[in-house]
Design a protein around this nucleic acid. Structure first.
Lengths: 135, 135
DNA sequence: CAATAGATGTTAGGTTTTTTAACATATATT
DNA sequence: AATATATGTTAAAAAACCTAACATCTATTG
């Protein structure tokens, strides 16, 4: 939960996001207009982007560079969403299993999870996604 | 090196830092004026704060809340600096030692380092420092 | 080929944020 | 009582951001 908050916490105004993604403000707003991203807003209507938003923009940019049009990108994002929630529900199943384990086993699994987190972190640096880069 | 860049990369305008730290802009600028933080500037002279800067501000805030005055905080920061560079040079020594190890040993140490990174991460969540929170 | 749709650039006018500098205030120290 | 410290408040200018409109370029389609 905490980790999700961090990925989705609104932090960056559009200017920072421009320099982070090398996209123009026009492009960023256009992608929002077409539902590819959903940045938060401040009380005074400024856009505020999370790490997750910036990640999505970087993915969008890559696909744009490959010649994929917005419809295609939208579709790919949607499919990715499906895959993610599938994985999540699978993960939840294994979480339920955990409920029946002994303390010792739990501690062992926790150690392993922390280790895996670190390992994944390292591995993901290669694919240039920002929030992973920053986590 | 990459990790250092991430901690020190200028990302946040002062407005975000205000909401992140619950300090007033006046306070933040005053602390800069007195050398407690050194935020970067954009080409157009706006302050841009890194995770490290925000961390420092959170530390400053804690000390302020404890009644420490700026001179005291400055001193504590300086001492902390000394401790950090001591640790760093110690770390460098152990890095030098590594140069003479076998591949197998190197791989083992790397695993251990990654694990430690994860462990430290967890532990530090309690003390409310932002960049650790986000790493 | 002409018309249309998609993606981005550019411009204009208005609002918000940030900056520095100055002055005000409250509290602690001398 | 005077001074120093820390912060608030205000003003004016510069920069960033907002929406909306119009322009341009490219690809597709009739």
């Amino acid at each position: 939960m905490g980790r999700q908050d961090r990925r989705t916490m609104p932090l960056f105004p559009i200017g920072i996001v421009q320099s982070l993604t090398d996209l123009s403000a026009r492009q960023i707003r256009y992608y929002e207009e077409h539902g590819l991203i959903h940045p938060a807003r401040t009380g005074s209507n400024r856009r505020l982007f999370s790490f997750e938003d910036v990640d999505r923009l970087l993915e969008i940019k890559e696909l744009i560079d490959k010649g994929v049009n917005l419809a295609g990108i939208k579709e790919m994002m949607a499919q990715k969403e499906v895959r993610a929630s599938t994985l999540k529900s699978e993960h939840n199943e294994s979480e339920n299993v955990k409920k029946d384990l002994s303390d010792r086993e739990l501690r062992e699994m926790l150690k392993q999870e922390i280790f895996e987190a670190g390992r994944l972190n390292k591995a993901s640096l290669r694919q240039g996604e920002l929030s992973r880069f920053f986590h």
